[in-house]
Computed example of a mutant assay.
Amino acid sequence: MAQIIKIQDCISRYEQDPYHYMNQYIRLKKQRWQLLTEMAREKEERLFHNGGTASEDTDSPKKKKFSLKRKKETSDINNGIEADDQWFNGLEEDVDERLFARIPADRKELASFFKEHLYQFQLKWASSTISDISSLSREIKNDKILQILAQQLPDSYFIMYHPVLQVNQAAVELSIMILTPLEIYCISFLEGDKESAFIGSKDRFWKEKTVRGREKAVLNPSTELLRTGSILSRLLKGSEIELPVRKLIISRTSYIDYPEPPYGIEIYDRRQWHEWLARQQKNFAPIKNQELKAAKILLSYGVSESTRREEWLD
């Protein structure tokens, strides 16, 4: 699963110490996956021995072995320290029967359960720190594109989802940026009606033609992409970072008819989307120093709107 390091103008833990959190994420993910696989194995054993019922005495030794050491939140806040396990609030307490009941015994289903569980905590990590918190809009919480990118791309990919950056004393919202070990993607997604067709042009607006013959006007995505690419190059200028910047227009659901797109812009519609995603999933390159450096520089320009947590107001 990719790491969400910035969402719009939300405060992010990565902004505080990107190197620490990027490495911590991978370590915690491995720990929690091991924990869940043990719990699934225990549940499978219960179902076998209890004739399809997973209930068991909550004080049994088997249950206690899943208990995690819980650091008191009050103590951490008073000391200004964030416990590693606080990212996984739902798993840091003793495992109760309600959580145990939700965990699928089937290994195939367990992976999906884990990804969803992990994604929800990624949203928290990308919108809060130990002292401050930002409000995620309903649109972001239900955003399928963000969820797909986070759950389908490798751990070594860093997602900046429409980040708001401070550029020349102005706050500017950019396209989706994905930092990888080998390159940086600037992406504009076109989400249209199923099997509709986007007709590309150099005009300010494109047309979307639906299968029922209706037409809609949509903003030309090339404009935002070219601006994002230009700003990205400017912010990284002089940093000795040599990651190629690629600009993509992607539609998962629709066709894109644009025979001659502007130079440097690649098109992937519903016919090529899965191929592009599959190529990214086969990228097993580890996190690179240049990628970390680029992320740190870009995050340093991040604009954050947040409020103080209640426990810090006294």
Results as ranks from 00 to 15, higher is better:
residue 112 S to A: 11
residue 85 D to P: 02
residue 264 G to Y: 10
residue 176 I to N: 07
residue 189 F to E: 01
residue 148 I to C: 05
residue 100 F to Q: 01
residue 3 Q to P: 00
residue 258 Y to K: 05
residue 141 K to I: 08
residue 21 Y to V: 07
residue 303 V to M: 12
residue 17 D to A: 13
residue 5 I to N: 00
residue 213 G to A: 13
residue 115 K to S: 10
residue 206 W to A: 02
residue 204 R to H: 12
residue 108 K to S: 15
residue 206 W to D: 00
residue 222 S to I: 07
residue 187 I to T: 05
residue 150 A to T: 09
residue 188 S to R: 01
residue 166 Q to T: 08
residue 313 L to P: 04
residue 209 K to D: 09
residue 241 I to A: 06
residue 235 L to E: 14
residue 301 Y to N: 09
residue 59 D to H: 13
residue 22 M to N: 12
residue 142 N to C: 14
residue 12 S to Y: 03
residue 147 Q to V: 04
residue 310 E to W: 08
residue 218 V to T: 15
residue 162 H to G: 11
residue 61 P to A: 08
residue 66 F to H: 14
residue 259 P to Y: 07
residue 301 Y to I: 04
residue 274 H to G: 07
residue 265 I to N: 01
residue 10 C to P: 03
residue 24 Q to N: 06
residue 133 I to G: 01
residue 188 S to C: 12
residue 195 E to I: 01
residue 247 K to T: 06
residue 283 N to K: 02
residue 28 L to N: 05
residue 54 A to F: 13
residue 182 L to Y: 10
residue 112 S to P: 02
residue 234 R to Q: 15
residue 172 V to W: 03
residue 266 E to S: 13
residue 236 L to D: 04
residue 257 D to R: 11
residue 67 S to N: 07
residue 310 E to H: 05
residue 27 R to T: 07
residue 1 M to I: 04
residue 185 Y to I: 03
residue 280 Q to N: 08
residue 15 E to T: 14
residue 34 Q to S: 08
residue 282 K to E: 05
residue 222 S to Y: 03
residue 99 L to Q: 11
residue 292 L to E: 09
residue 188 S to D: 10
residue 286 P to Y: 03
residue 114 F to E: 01
residue 155 D to P: 04
residue 58 T to W: 14
residue 20 H to S: 09
residue 203 D to N: 14
residue 298 L to P: 00
residue 108 K to H: 09
residue 200 G to P: 03
residue 140 I to L: 11
residue 117 H to W: 10
residue 241 I to H: 06
residue 75 S to R: 15
residue 212 R to D: 15
residue 51 G to E: 08
residue 126 A to K: 00
residue 254 S to M: 04
residue 310 E to D: 08
residue 144 K to Q: 15
residue 182 L to R: 10
residue 281 Q to N: 02
residue 204 R to W: 06
residue 212 R to A: 13
residue 262 P to F: 08
residue 68 L to E: 04
residue 28 L to T: 01
residue 224 E to G: 12
residue 197 A to M: 11
residue 90 G to S: 13
residue 147 Q to A: 07
residue 176 I to F: 05
residue 38 E to M: 10
residue 152 Q to Y: 09
residue 158 F to S: 07
residue 108 K to F: 06
residue 275 E to Y: 11
residue 125 W to P: 03
residue 129 T to P: 06
residue 91 L to W: 04
residue 160 M to R: 05
residue 62 K to Q: 12
residue 31 Q to R: 06
residue 273 W to Q: 09
residue 291 E to R: 06
residue 172 V to D: 06
residue 62 K to G: 11
residue 68 L to V: 09
residue 19 Y to H: 14
residue 119 Y to L: 00
residue 298 L to T: 04
residue 142 N to A: 09
residue 51 G to P: 03
residue 171 A to S: 10
residue 76 D to K: 11
residue 298 L to C: 04
residue 102 R to Y: 03
residue 47 L to I: 13
residue 87 W to Y: 06
residue 162 H to N: 13
residue 261 P to R: 09
residue 11 I to F: 05
residue 54 A to S: 15
residue 74 T to R: 11
residue 218 V to P: 01
residue 308 R to G: 06
residue 230 S to M: 14
residue 198 F to E: 00
residue 262 P to K: 07
residue 143 D to E: 15
residue 90 G to A: 14
residue 277 L to T: 08
residue 217 A to D: 13
residue 146 L to V: 12
residue 11 I to V: 15
residue 183 E to K: 14
residue 99 L to F: 13
residue 170 A to F: 09
residue 157 Y to P: 02
